[in-house]
């Protein structure tokens, strides 16, 4: 269903060669490019990710054993499964974070709108710009203020300063954090509560305008109220980005996800609309897991 969306957006980007020079520094000037028939990339027209035979290793040990799976554009896909089933490892392969662990490597394909991210010609830095990540533990930069945390990614790519505060504000608004922090943007990010820190990290990821957002158990360190806020946020964000969320909390998956994938021992058991997975799963193991018989 989503394969048309990305193809449509892919076209305007690859037409003019000079585009590459603008876009290296700036995220938006695609709008100035002559060939851009569409005035601006519509918010709802997103990007899909497809895994093909993805395998991930720690040294010799194979933690993810050949997964093929699609994350459709502008949808929230939840990955559930018992701890140790490889779900975190799997999404860390999507933005090639997995290979940062000494001795770890991955095989297979991860396609972002038909671009194989493991193609040798692909720059890993670009992959991580295109696919943002929110981690299990809120990890704002401890030495930076709230403002600087959000601006950190922007400052890497853009020399221009004039738009910075505007972009920071819009990222904080997108993360529903603006109203809580607008009066203390210069105080340290580490001084916020856990839930606020996690939303700060979401704002930091959104500020660089990624196409996909990966969330690795983003609420596991948070209290229920903070968790609820993040879940509401996820619902709004899918207008803008494709979201993949790993969670050990099945209620959370049921609440936020359009589609749910169930993993066991490094393999994909089944994937489908969330409703279906939780009510009429096709596989006995899924049924046992979602009804709490194990895990």
């Amino acid at each position: 269903m989503s394969t048309d969306g990305p193809a449509a957006t892919a076209v305007p980007h690859n037409d003019p060669m000079e585009l590459e020079h603008h876009t290296a520094d700036e995220t938006h000037p695609a709008t100035d490019a002559p060939a851009t028939a569409q005035p601006q990339r519509p918010a709802h027209q997103g990007h899909s990710v497809r895994l093909e035979g993805l395998r991930a290793f720690y040294g010799e040990a194979e933690q993810v054993r050949g997964i093929s799976l699609e994350f459709p554009a502008n949808q929230v896909t939840a990955i559930i499964g018992p701890s140790g089933c490889g779900k975190s490892t799997m999404i860390r392969c999507v933005n090639r974070m997995h290979e940062e662990i000494p001795g770890a490597h991955a095989k297979g394909k991860v396609l972002l709108d038909d671009v194989d991210l493991y193609d040798p010609a692909v720059d890993v830095v670009a992959v991580r710009r295109a696919i943002g990540m929110v981690f299990q533990k809120p990890n704002p930069f401890p030495t930076m203020s709230i403002f600087d945390n959000v601006a950190a990614g922007l400052r890497l790519t853009s020399r221009r300063r004039e738009n910075l505060s505007h972009k920071v504000e819009s990222a904080l608004r997108s993360a529903s954090l603006w109203d809580e922090v607008k009066d203390r943007l210069s105080s340290p990010g580490a001084g916020l509560s856990g839930g606020q820190q996690q939303r700060l990290c979401i704002a930091r990821s959104l500020a660089v305008d990624p196409e996909v957002l990966l969330m690795d158990e983003p609420c596991s360190a948070l209290d229920p109220i903070a968790t609820l806020k993040i879940e509401e946020l996820i619902d709004q964000l899918k207008q803008r980005v494709t979201i993949v969320i790993v969670t050990h909390n099945m209620q959370q998956a049921a609440r936020v996800a359009d589609r749910t994938a169930f993993m066991l021992s490094g393999a994909l058991v089944e994937v489908g609309p969330t409703q279906e997975i939780f009510t009429t799963p096709g596989d006995l193991r899924t049924e046992e897991y979602v009804t709490g018989k194990f895990g």
């Binding site: 830095v125 533990k137 930069f141 990614g153």
Partner: peptide, 21 residues
């Protein structure tokens, strides 16, 4: 902590930018 380094890399920082950030 590896968290902080991953935060920087996850933002699309190059290796040197991660060290600096």
């Amino acid at each position: 902590p590896p968290d902080h380094k991953e935060a920087a890399l996850g933002l699309g920082a190059t290796r040197w930018e991660m060290i600096r950030l």
